[in-house]
Design a protein around this nucleic acid. Structure first.
Lengths: 246, 246
DNA sequence: ACCTGAACACCGTTCAAGT
DNA sequence: ACCTGAACACCGTTCAAGT
């Protein structure tokens, strides 16, 4: 994409005419630098050396721009599968998606409740569906399975990264918030909240990785059970030591 | 909570002094009548016959008001369990939560990424934890399990009710959106998207109830596997006909 | 065809001032 | 103690007007 560039530009900020790509790029830059709350049409325009009104020649409204942004962010993850054990591939895909979702600032807030079936999502779905079908899932189970997986990863990251409440997370570190919650739970009247008091420690352990793997294990085991006609000969019990891969 | 009421009021809208309860009640009314996008401080104040600035004497900011609203909405569901088969109870609880989440307009947008550990959530967690522990889950598994369940239900409803994209859901019925997606998938080049083309029908079947039960089955089966020492004698294969209950 | 100026109809929030 | 008036610093979006 080499682009001829005129040298004499009055404003240094304005370089090339606006395109969908440059606009999405500016939105990405604003999101990464200033966060979702600062992602305004005026900020995106300013990033391009342009006024907000100019954007509306190229994009219908902000919601559509966020759809584009969603696609662009999604396109930056490349799902890699080994092609050997399909359950390992499902696990690797889920981890890669979660890792990507957490590496891009506020991406989960762009993704929340957004399901734009464009080329970026299609490319990924194609890969995931391939793994599930290779595992021997029926068409229906593969379709339901991919939604469940996408749903799980997105929902997990959304709840993992969200402020735990307006009251607490005013700049408080997540560790101290959990410590506070633990004290709060432990101090409850044990007569009316016996379970919450007993599990105060377990409920506030704050190890999101282990919790992610726990739910992921449930899903993968369930999918495995539905794979192939009936048998579950190669069953491998879920152990503490999960197979790591980078 | 009988409240003495002075009869002579200059403004008919203003009846009683503002309290946390009346403010939350007004927010609930606005949300139910006009939806989340219309839930502004000015609208809540107007519902009370008061100006927006007045609210700030009683609540720090809008985010905290939404925390309160979240609690109030959550408090309106009463989880009922039978106490017989714990897996049935888990299923019933998940269904009740989903039903409640969908019955209150835009509640999932208030709940998304919000986890306010106040009395309303504590009451429900206490019930769910009781069921999981009765099923024989370890403390750790019960804690992880309840997060996974809450996460699943909230994430599912969020993705189920969210507009499928800015491009599509401009007033379009969900059925026709899915039909459009089906055609879009089926029309893809089968060489590069073999799985998406083959599963075009299954991916766009639009039966959220069945999809919800599918994922729920995966979770419940996985929890069951972790219950008690090791055996899975009373295993009941997941059949098409799921046990219904109102 | 593409961008600007200026405006419209809003927001959340603050704060002196009223009672 | 509790509420109002008025403002501040923003929003997304529209549209005539410029080039």
């Amino acid at each position: 994409m080499a682009r001829t560039r005129k040298i004499s530009e009055p404003k240094p900020a304005r370089a090339a005419p606006l395109t969908r790509d440059t606009i999405v790029g500016a939105a990405k830059a604003v999101l990464e630098r200033d966060g979702y709350d600062a992602l305004t049409m005026r900020a995106v325009a300013s990033e391009l050396g342009v006024r907000a009104a100019s954007l509306y020649w190229h994009v219908r409204d902000k919601d559509l721009l966020e759809d584009w942004l969603f696609g662009a962010l999604l396109d930056e993850v490349t799902l890699t599968v080994r092609g050997a054990d399909w359950r390992e591939d499902v696990r690797a895909i889920a981890r890669q998606m979660r890792g990507h979702l957490m590496s891009k600032r506020d991406m989960q807030r762009v993704s929340a409740g957004r399901f734009v079936l464009g080329p970026p999502l299609l490319r990924q779905m194609e890969i995931i569906l391939g793994v599930l079908r290779r595992g021997g899932l029926s068409n229906r189970d593969a379709a339901f399975g991919i939604y469940t997986l996408l749903n799980y990863v997105n929902g997990f990251v959304l709840f993992q990264t969200a402020p735990l409440s307006a009251a607490q997370a005013k700049g408080a570190k997540r560790g101290v918030v959990f410590a506070g919650l633990r004290r709060q739970l432990a101090a409850l009247p044990a007569a009316t909240y016996p379970n919450s008091v007993a599990l105060a420690g377990d409920l506030t352990s704050n190890d999101p990785d282990a919790r992610f793997e726990f739910g992921l294990d449930l899903l993968i085991e369930g999918l495995e059970r539905r794979a192939k006609p009936s048998h579950a000969d190669a069953w491998r019990p879920a152990s503490e030591g999960l197979n790591q891969e980078s």
